[in-house]
């Protein structure tokens, strides 16, 4: 799924593409409000608007015959919420949960969905000028869901389009259903 980063030729968006310090001198630098989490050594960011809440690990009820990247369901204050292992979904090697593991609860078009991540590092406001389009750098994960990358304090942050990821799952599910 191609992500049109800059569908218009407006001057504003073209300027954002130019990396550098010029933007920092501006007073009102546009900001990306991100939740930064880790999977292995890589740092990822998702739009804070997509994140409902962040929880420590809790008991997960396994659901037989679910897709392999679904760990099961949790009871989120009376609501039954499916939980996805983001590592498995993105094709990274699996790893057992530990003290630092978190369930990041997000919202899909249908219901809430928890994502297991290795750790949640911080909530960050990132100047938009630091964000580059994906093509410039390689990353471990499927690039169709990466809409940009940024460097901050020597650390590479990969920005993920969660809704795009869910949409893709859904289309796949629909395709399989139609094929049956």
């Amino acid at each position: 799924m191609p992500v049109a980063l800059h569908p218009t030729g407006s001057g504003a968006s073209r300027r954002e593409l130019i990396p550098g310090r010029a933007a920092q001198m501006k007073e009102a630098e546009p900001q990306e409000h991100l939740v930064i989490f880790t999977l292995g050594n890589e740092c990822y960011g998702v739009d804070i608007g997509d994140v409902w809440e962040i929880n420590t690990m809790q008991e997960i009820t396994r659901v037989p015959r679910a897709p392999h990247f679904i760990e099961g369901v949790i009871n989120l204050r009376g609501e039954i919420v499916p939980v996805m292992d983001l590592r498995k979904r993105l094709g990274l090697p699996a790893r057992p949960a530990d003290q630092k593991s978190r369930i990041m609860v997000t919202k899909t078009a249908h219901n809430r969905l928890g994502l297991i991540v290795d750790s949640v590092r911080e909530v960050l406001k990132l100047p938009a000028s630091l964000i580059k389009p994906t093509a410039e750098l390689g990353t471990l994960i499927d690039e169709s869901f990466v809409w940009g990358v940024a460097h901050k304090d020597e650390q590479l942050i990969v920005l993920i389009d969660l809704q795009g990821l869910f949409d893709a799952d859904e289309h796949e599910a629909l395709d399989t259903m139609e094929a049956v």
Partner: peptide, 9 residues
């Protein structure tokens, strides 16, 4: 937020 604009656009 650029992302919001990108998504919307």
């Amino acid at each position: 937020a650029k992302f919001m604009r990108v998504r919307c656009a």
